[in-house]
Computed example of a mutant assay.
Amino acid sequence: MIGIIDYGAGNLHSVEKAIKRLGYPSVRIEDGTFTNVIDQLILPGVGHAEQAMRQLDERGLTTYMQRKTDEGIPLLGICLGMQLLLEKSEEGDTSCLGYLQGTVREFSVENQKVPHMGWNEVADSQQHFLLKDLPDTTDFYFVHSYHAEPKHQEHIIGLTNYGHEFASAIGNEQIMGVQFHPEKSGQAGLKLLDNFCRYAKKVEAC
């Protein structure tokens, strides 16, 4: 069972629809009292980092996710959900979940529009299972004004260029995030979600 974190915002419905299309069972997790067994977690996200963290905290979801990740449950963050995996975001000067070391920075690019919106290439940099059986460079759909800067190079799974190169997919064997929207990225996006659902298994906590 795949648990989808619902903190009252974001692209939850389209993620649910994509998971259902792939044939995997899923359930919405709306607060920290949820007790059913889940095998993986997805944290969707569209919106503002500070507001999202406030909602996660108030609903008990921050504590819930920490407990589950401590148990070794894999977690995938999408768009803002990926940014929240890091320690801090410049958006609202927000302290985030801190599963991965690093900071989320506001885009500063010359001769490019912000937000970064539309299709762009993601280059596989780690041969991580999240990008398994996809081309070395694959187009995905982006909408964002901030980008992740992981502290450790080994946490960069995919790279994209928009004015400058940035990490568009990050993580390790348990905690993963993608800046783009796989649920809006056609067959390539479905393949990435299928890879997460198929290959992300319970591991020793990071």
Rank of each mutant, 00 (worst) to 15 (best):
S125V: 08
V104D: 00
L134N: 07
P115I: 04
I73Q: 06
K113N: 13
M65E: 09
G47H: 08
Y64E: 01
P74G: 15
F142Y: 08
I42D: 02
G72S: 15
D136S: 03
Q127P: 01
P135H: 12
V109I: 08
D93E: 02
D124L: 04
P44V: 01
D57T: 10
P74M: 09
D136E: 03
P115C: 11
C79D: 03
G77F: 12
L75E: 10
Q126W: 01
A52K: 09
Y141N: 01
P74N: 10
D124P: 02
I73M: 05
H128P: 05
C79T: 06
Q127T: 11
T69V: 15
H48A: 11
G102T: 12
L56Q: 09
L100R: 14
K132E: 13
Q83M: 12
E71A: 15
L84T: 01
Q101N: 15
L131E: 12
E106A: 06
W119R: 05
P44W: 07
A49K: 12
H116T: 11
E90K: 03
D93G: 10
S125I: 01
D70T: 14
A52S: 07
C96P: 00
F107K: 07
Y99S: 11
L86N: 05
L86F: 11
R67W: 06
L43K: 11
T137G: 07
R54W: 03
Q66M: 13
L43V: 12
D133S: 09
G47V: 02
E50A: 05
V143E: 02
L100N: 10
L130I: 11
L131D: 13
K113D: 15
S125W: 05
S95F: 00
L100E: 07
E50P: 00
E110R: 09
T137P: 00
L41Q: 05
F142R: 07
I42Q: 02
R59T: 14
V122D: 04
A49W: 10
G102P: 00
T69F: 14
L61C: 11
Q126F: 00
T62P: 00
E58L: 07
L76P: 00
G98C: 13
V143Y: 04
G72K: 08
Y64L: 14
D57P: 08
L61S: 13
L56A: 06
G92V: 07
K68P: 00
T94K: 06
E110G: 05
Q51G: 04
E50V: 06
V114S: 03
L61R: 01
L130V: 13
P115E: 03
E91I: 03
D133I: 02
M65C: 13
N120A: 04
Q126M: 07
H144D: 01
D133W: 04
R54T: 15
A49T: 06
L43M: 05
L84F: 12
G77K: 11
I73R: 06
P44C: 07
E110L: 04
